[in-house]
Design a binder for these strands. Structure first.
Lengths: 129, 129
DNA sequence: CCGAATCCTAGACGATACTG
DNA sequence: CAGTATCGTCTAGGATTCGG
């Protein structure tokens, strides 16, 4: 049992890989994928249909990244037809709560943001910009 | 006092603007900007230096988007030298908590993620991929 | 000094068709 | 079913320069 150096990141340090992690969390699909896998393991096309609007190619590459990051596990069953299941790892499950909070915030405030943006656009337009 | 239709978003509906909101939250700098403004109003270069690694142009455009979305307020003071302050609106303040949670998660787990990615890369390499 | 306007590139993302 | 392959697009972000 070796002691591990428990290293804490600092998102405000440009050299810290935390920046990279934040970038990945911020990609277009990660939040939705992590969020939907909270209800249990899912197959490729289950995820694809649940999310909607994501192409197979993009889903593949996003899932790959998440597996590499240790957030998801990919399990292949030797069956015909083939079956592949994706599920959250412990690390992935620990991300689910913050990520769901962000999604809930977005859902709760989307109306206000859209309003604000419309008002802003009008103001710009009437200013002749 | 008019009743407003309180419309709730659904991030899993491709047609819902919640998707757009999530995209914005996920850009490279929004999390850090919202987070740092929690400690009070800041000037352009204060934000720039606090974050580190962001160019003026990108900071300008990100701030503009956040103002348009109603998350930030931009206040110009007629002074010499000129002074401009950015601060969180109420809406922005409501975002700070979920966003800080995400940053904290990233900071706490960056080591594990980097490890996982390294191990994954090695496994790929030794498999001759 | 505080920022804004221009130009440019990398890579994320999408559409479509195809394979083991 | 679960992806690959190919091509095209779009824009966030970076380097640089300019105005007030």
């Amino acid at each position: 049992m070796s002691m591990r150096v428990r290293w804490e990141g600092d998102a405000f340090d440009p050299g810290c890989p935390t920046r990279v992690v934040l970038d990945r969390l911020g990609d277009k699909w990660t939040v939705l994928i992590v969020d939907i896998l909270d209800s249990g393991p899912k197959r490729f096309n289950e995820i694809r249909l649940a999310i909607g609007g994501i192409t197979p190619k993009v889903l593949t590459s996003t899932l790959r990244s998440l597996v590499a990051d240790g957030l998801l596990e990919r399990e292949v069953f030797a069956e015909v037809p083939p079956r592949v299941e994706y599920s959250l790892t412990d690390l992935g499950r620990s991300l689910q709560e913050p990520v769901a909070a962000l999604r809930r915030w977005a859902e709760a405030n989307v109306a206000e943001i859209v309003d604000s943006r419309d008002r802003h656009d009008e103001a710009q337009a009437s200013a002749g910009v």
